[in-house]
Every structure is written in C-alpha cells, then in structure tokens.
Nucleic acid binder design. Structure first.
Lengths: 217, 217
DNA sequence: GTCTATACTTCGATAGAC
DNA sequence: GTCTATCGAAGTATAGAC
C-alpha cells in the first residue's frame, strides 16, 4: 500500500533526534483560533476512526486547512496527541466536578461513568499509550486525577447514605463501576450485547439498595 | 517524519480495490512452518508495541525473514491480523474450556479472566476493530463464543454452589468480573495502582461468600 | 499566520527470477 | 518457497516566500 505514519516516524515511534539546541522553528500561539480548529478536527478523527487516523494530512483536511499548519502549531504529532488528551481530560474533569458538587451520589457517578464517548476516548488513548512514552505519562497523570475526584465524591456519597466499609469500600465500588462501564462500551462498539440488560439492572438495583431513593427519580 | 503505514494504505484503511476476479497471485499453504513463525513474530509485536507496529517489514525482520514472505503467506495485512486473532482466540478458548472442565468454579473463572496478556490482547484488537470492518466482525464472533463458554461454566458453578438468580445472575457476575479485570490491567499498563488491593480483596471475598471453600486453597 | 515546495522515510503490494 | 527489484502512495517535518 502506501506509506503512512504509524510505524517509525522520527517522533512517533522512536525518540528521534530532537535537535534540542538550535532549531529556530516557529510555533503558533496557544490561544489561536486555528489551533483550536485543529484540535477539534483531531479529536473527532480520533473518536471516529481511531488514533491511527490522526495524521497531519488528515487533520488538516478535516479542519479545512493545509496540513503544514498542523506542524506550525504542534512541534510533533506527539505534542498534538498530548494536547488533544489534555484538553478533553480537563474539560471532562470540570464537568465531573460540577455534576458531583450538585449531586454527590452513587447514581451520579454511575451516570457519568457510563458516558460512552468518555470510554471510547480513554480506550483509544490507553492503546496509544501502550507504545508512546510521552503520552503514557500524561494519561497516567490524568487517570490519577480522575480517580481522585471520583473517589472524593463517592466517599461523601457513602457517608451521606451510611454505607460502611464492611459492605464495600468506596474505591472498590469505583473500580467496579468503571470496569462494568468499560466492558459495556467495548462490547457495544463490537455490536455485542449479551447480558447487558441483566448487568445494568443488577448495578442499578445494587445502587438503589445502597443508596435508597430520596428526591430525583 | 517518515512515512509509515497506518493512515491510508490501500488495504489498511479503506477497502481498497480488491480485484476479486483475476489475480493469479500465489499464497503459501496454511500448514507451513514459516507461516507459523510469521504469526508468532506478529503476535509478539502486537503485544509488545501495539498493532501499529505490526507492519510487513517489521514482522519479517522479527521473524528473520524477508518482509515479502509476509505478503506471500497473507494476501493483505488485514488477513494477517485476522489470523493472529483467530489463532490466539482459539487457543485461549480451548485453555478456558479445559480449565473449567477440570474445576468449574467462580474462582477459576476469576483466575482466567485476570490473565493480563489476554486483556492486553483484546484491548489492542478492540482498538483495531474500531476502524477495520473485517476485523471487527471476527472479534465480535469470538467475543460471543468466549462469553458463551464462560457463561456455561459460571452457570454450572452457580448451580453447584446453590447461588440463586436473586443474588446475582451468572451473566451479570461474568460481566462484572470481566470489567474489573479490564480496569485493573489497563491501570497497570499505565502504572496506576490506586485501589487495586482493595478491589481485588473485595472480589475475592465476594467469591468466597458466594462459593464457600471446598477443596483447593 | 498561511502557503508552496520539497526532503526523506516507511509502508503495502506485486512481478519475476531462481 | 524464497529472493531481488521496484512502484506508487502516504506520512512527518522543514525551509522559505508572501
């Protein structure tokens, strides 16, 4: 077939000679509107077709720009990936904190955890992180932050509902919910739905048992 | 950087002109020893560096063969991917059935489910399936078979231990275990371990509660 | 800030000799 | 069954004009 990108590019697979010293190469400002469009296009591409589809040429095309502009705003494609991830993670983190501040309950955590696009996003990045060190570090960092935020909310929800540690520890409940959400989403991507209804209703009844109804439906 | 492969290749990303009719191109026999070596090398590469590292050239190098031999044994790279998957899935499936025939218990299912290489393998393929139709179909097929085999074992284990459906349905228990195993493995790949000990011991005690000790430790 | 042009690398795939 | 040779496409990245 044709050439491509994912197998050896200077910056993509090995570290590459970074030429740390000289290099007067110009880089666009972070608050540029064009830069935002590039990130939008790249994120869409990532979600729809996987990280392998995120090439400077395709991103440029999707954004209606010359592919070279991608290189103007991002020194390497790794930089672009890290930025896509950071931007999205930061946004989701805020959304999370806002929702949990408004209603710190088990069911809110469950609702947020089962957002499919969030899972697709993180699966794609875990696969990507599998072989790109710079990206792995970034993801690990946000994974910890996410878990901390969720744990905090879950802990306060447990306190409120009087759930004790000998029933289940908040952190265990969190990993359980995260895991279930992940399998369900992955399955769905494949078109597999065996047992989904039973599992969802099990989780929901477990939540209802631990955290009896109070106000919202 | 350099060229590469994963972004547009004729057969990799779009369907490509398959030229279904003519094409007298020769293909090696399925029982060839060389073919096996190619599959071994490709599987290792996939596990260690991700699917993007599986190119005909790199596979050839890893197997100590000319890359063209990869094309001799596999018409397209998609064919190679499907074969890697099929071979491994079939092997795991047999291993599964053997282990569960010997000891059809909840804890055996848990032990098998938490094999990290199995999870890494399937994550990699789910990411791959995200944008390759032919592969997705294959994975979905095996996912169903796996689940069926596991479910059968779990159902018989539940019967044996007298676990009833109003505690938890076998299929729900299966998805729960699969999900937890997935999160744990993914986390570990990133170097994140927050809450793992608590979660593992929760699962183990849940298993012990549902399925009281009998013989093996 | 954006564009044209271009260097260089790797990829998938095939043809044809041995 | 394996090798040499080669095509054509796509990728990352840079230089330099506008």
């Amino acid at each position: 077939m044709s050439g491509g990108r994912l197998a050896s590019g200077r910056s993509l697979w090995h570290a590459g000679a970074v030429k740390a010293t000289s290099s007067a190469r110009r880089i666009g400002t972070v608050d540029s509107k064009t830069r935002g469009r590039i990130l939008d296009a790249a994120e869409r591409l990532l979600l729809d077709e996987g990280y392998a589809a995120v090439t400077s040429r395709r991103v440029g095309a999707k954004a209606g720009l010359k592919s070279q502009l991608v290189h103007y705003y991002f020194r390497t494609m790794d930089d672009l990936f890290v930025e896509i991830f950071r931007r999205r993670a930061e946004r989701d983190l805020r959304r999370f904190e806002r929702a949990l501040a408004a209603d710190p309950s088990l069911r809110t955590v469950w609702k947020l955890t089962t957002d499919p696009s969030g899972t697709v996003f993180s699966i794609e990045f875990v696969a990507l992180a599998n072989h790109r060190k710079a990206i792995r570090a970034e993801i690990a960092h946000y994974a910890e932050r996410f878990r901390a935020a969720q744990l905090k909310a879950l802990t306060s929800a447990f306190d409120k509902s009087g759930i004790t540690a000998d029933q289940i520890a908040p952190i265990a409940a969190l990993l359980l919910m995260t895991g279930v959400a992940q399998v369900l989403t992955l399955d769905e991507q494949l078109g597999v739905k065996t047992g989904h209804d039973e599992t969802v209703s099990y989780v929901q009844s477990a939540i209802a048992r631990l955290e009896p109804e109070e106000a919202n439906p």
